[in-house]
Design a protein around this nucleic acid. Sequence first.
DNA 1: TATTGTTATACTCTATAACTATA
DNA 2: TATAGTTATAGAGTATAACAATA
Lengths: 154, 154
Amino acid sequence: MLKVHQCEDVLDRVLTLVVMLNDDMTQGLGALGLTSSRAHLLWELGQRGPVPQRVLAAALKITPRAVTGLVDALVASGLVTREPHPSDRRAALVTFTATGQTLIAQLERDHEALASALFAPMSRAELDCFEQWLTDVTARLRAHQAVTAAAPPD
Amino acid sequence: MLKVHQCEDVLDRVLTLVVMLNDDMTQGLGALGLTSSRAHLLWELGQRGPVPQRVLAAALKITPRAVTGLVDALVASGLVTREPHPSDRRAALVTFTATGQTLIAQLERDHEALASALFAPMSRAELDCFEQWLTDVTARLRAHQAVTAAAPPD
DNA sequence: TATTGTTATACTCTATAACTATA
DNA sequence: TATAGTTATAGAGTATAACAATA
């Protein structure tokens, strides 16, 4: 059992890394003329192909109204279009333009490059150790959330 | 050397954990009636004691104007006050109220509780392994940032 | 009646620029 | 002249609520 201050040190180091990672990714997206939210939408679209906006709302965990705003901005940038849904005239299929295709391919290359830069040098032993840590911490975080949700704070 | 897809899997698992961690913290703050930005300001204030707003702007890496807005909101909530600076009549010292003191103490307890829940069960060996991983990845991220900043994307 | 996406409105966070009061 | 903090203005992201068109 680690002491509380040791645990807090670890948490703070993790949060520092999270901030660095976020800054790095945000800066990379900014160089491509994208905000985080718009890039996230494009990413989900890249995973799914043309989909109606409600699918993106669910994937991004935002309201349909917020999706409208993001898609409007991406249409204005020429990255996606709203195409008619073949069987549901209420819905629009958000679809990449050629420019959008090029950009999502770049995003995927950047994602690979970042992942490789960070993790390719890991040894098999390090990977095993880290994956164990990740599994343990994820499980503990889930348990912690269950506890705090059940016991309302004072 | 790990393969690219293995690296991407690790990155995605890390990012999933980051999202979970962020959701947990955001939810905890919401239960206390705080947004992330306001809580971050209170946290920095708790580390420093009464300080002028420019110190908070530097700590939070936001503009002085943005600090004005956050402090306005915290004053309206009765958590801080603007007190006159003893030697510089241009500046205001942002200072906790009694309510604010109580709240920052709660934030500190929550921080400890989260840190302990996540990391207290780690063994000495796991801690050593994880700290090595953290050091390595942080260094690689710094190197990666230096490279991408030097070579502008196509 | 339920669903898809919109218009209308509002709040939070952030930024730049111009300005006041003070140093 | 420089600094601390403000007003003014703007943009991005998000939310709820009311509504249109369609299912």
